[in-house]
């Protein structure tokens, strides 16, 4: 017989930042696409369509930044599943072995489902890349935003990016980062669904409730 117990894996800050990031990326992508390629929606010059869309983009950008920074802080304060070590599995041999095992499963070489409690090693390493994309989006975004106020501290800080790179180059990169994050989101939802089916580890519900089922043989 198998006894099913449950284990608290994803703490509140992990789940909250996950969903704030999800909503923020959704809103930022939709508003960002409009900012990059707007439609003439205003009927009168007194309208403020682009003004509001940009306002939403900037406010949500702040929320996203705070969420990402909070998640970084939780990498040190949270439980072991939230810890920064989950995102750098490649620093030791065991982690590299686990990454290889997961990779072999994904590319249909191996048929063994590697059941894990927290992030699987390959996913953890992927999230490191995603955190990198977040940071680059934040830096390029605030740099472009701060251009309106060249005397601000923000421009003095983020505007340094315009010494080696052109404003248009940074803008292009900001767009490309969005598409990479959308590509990641598609992959992420698929992988979560796949592992939910294959692993039966309750990964889908865990991101809502925080608990994962543990099967113990008696």
């Amino acid at each position: 017989m198998t006894k099913i117990t449950s284990k608290y894996v994803w703490e509140v800050p992990v789940r909250v930042t996950h969903w704030v990031n999800f909503l923020a990326i959704l809103v930022l992508s939709v508003t960002g696409i409009y900012i990059g390629n707007p439609k003439s929606l205003a009927l009168a010059p007194s309208g403020y369509v682009m003004g509001w869309v940009r306002f939403i983009h900037f406010v949500v950008a702040y929320a996203f930044t705070i969420s990402v920074l909070a998640r970084f802080w939780w990498m040190y304060k949270g439980n072991r599943y939230a810890n920064w070590r989950s995102f750098v599995p490649f620093i030791n041999a065991d982690g590299r072995h686990k990454m290889g095992r997961m990779f072999r499963y994904y590319v249909f070489i191996s048929k063994e489902v590697p059941y894990v409690e927290g992030h699987n090693a390959l996913a953890g390493a992927t999230y490191l890349l995603v955190f990198g994309l977040y940071l680059l989006s934040i830096v390029t975004g605030f740099a472009l935003y701060a251009e309106y106020a060249p005397d601000s501290v923000m421009f003095k800080l983020f505007g340094l990016i315009f010494i080696p790179f052109s404003s248009q180059g940074v803008r292009l990169f900001h767009h490309i980062l969005m598409w990479l994050l959308i590509g990641f989101a598609i992959h992420h939802i698929y992988s979560a669904w796949l592992m939910d089916v294959k692993e039966r580890g309750g990964v889908m519900s865990a991101i809502f409730g925080g608990y994962k089922p543990l099967r113990e043989k008696e």
Partner: peptide, 18 residues
């Protein structure tokens, strides 16, 4: 990923939980 999903769906994994 849709393709990957179709293939995954048809495969039987080893060490599957009961």
């Amino acid at each position: 990923f849709a393709g990957h999903g179709v293939i995954s769906g048809m495969r039987h994994d080893k060490g599957k939980p009961e």
